[in-house]
Design a protein around this nucleic acid. Sequence first.
DNA 1: CTTCTTGTTACTGA
DNA 2: ATCAGTAACAAGAA
Length: 284
Amino acid sequence: MPELPEVETIRRGLAKRILHKPIKKVDIRKARVVRPQPSRFARALTRKSFTAIRRRGKLLIFAIAGGQQFMLAHLKMTGQLIYEKGPEIIAGGHGFPPVGALSKYTHVIFHFTDGSRLLFNDLRQFGYLKLVDGAGVAQAEAAFGLEPLGSGWRWQRLKHAMAGRQLTIKAALLNQRLVAGIGNIYADEILFAARLRPTRRLPSLRPAHWQTIARATRAILARALKHGGTTFNNYRDAAGGRGNFTRLLKVYGRGGATCLRCRHALRRIKTAGRGTVYCPRCQT
DNA sequence: CTTCTTGTTACTGA
DNA sequence: ATCAGTAACAAGAA
């Protein structure tokens, strides 16, 4: 599942590969993943190029040459943006998992004039590519809360953003309107680092806790980004490669295993609608 | 075959 | 209004 570190890794990978390359053709194979309708989507991008790529939370924002239009890309759980050059290779045959390459899960192909391609793959088709104008970008960006890797990240602002709410800390971290970019993997990792139970309610947190949460959030996400993100199943970077943070995960996916801090068995529960792993001994 | 999974939104009931 | 829980979306893994 691409979260902030994975989406930022993709952003960087694409920014150094596709910017200013003229788009010769947009091949839309699955209409439901693009908005608005394919004809308008393709027309807006053909013979244009991308001039910049930004990120807000897990959302990628592509500026289209001309300055009036933008493409928003959300990968949801299984979306991929893969850049390819050289001959087309169809994956999915014998022993080649159909991820990170052209396959039946490739729903949109941007063909650049130099013969290279940008693939939008999505096994579950929850992700989307959406054409918007400047107001649409502003509206989309305004819906997100604090950026953990941004220059405005302060524990006081985090505390303020969550003031007066009765949520559990896990639900709060997952709420994109409060904090941008955290998903299920990093929420669990952050709470383990902060030694807090996912079910802790916000009003019980003291300023020292907020400092710890803010510091842990930034540290975990920055470290994951440095390692190219986490590949648990489906995630691939812009070159089709895997993330290397997976082996550094402390709790996610380790329910029943031993806590790396205190050796107690890690517990798996369901909270905030999500599978959640934590240590009942050292997270309070 | 059933159950589970995950990001996000919409809905329901408290 | 706010919160927890769940369905929905699609498709594969177990």
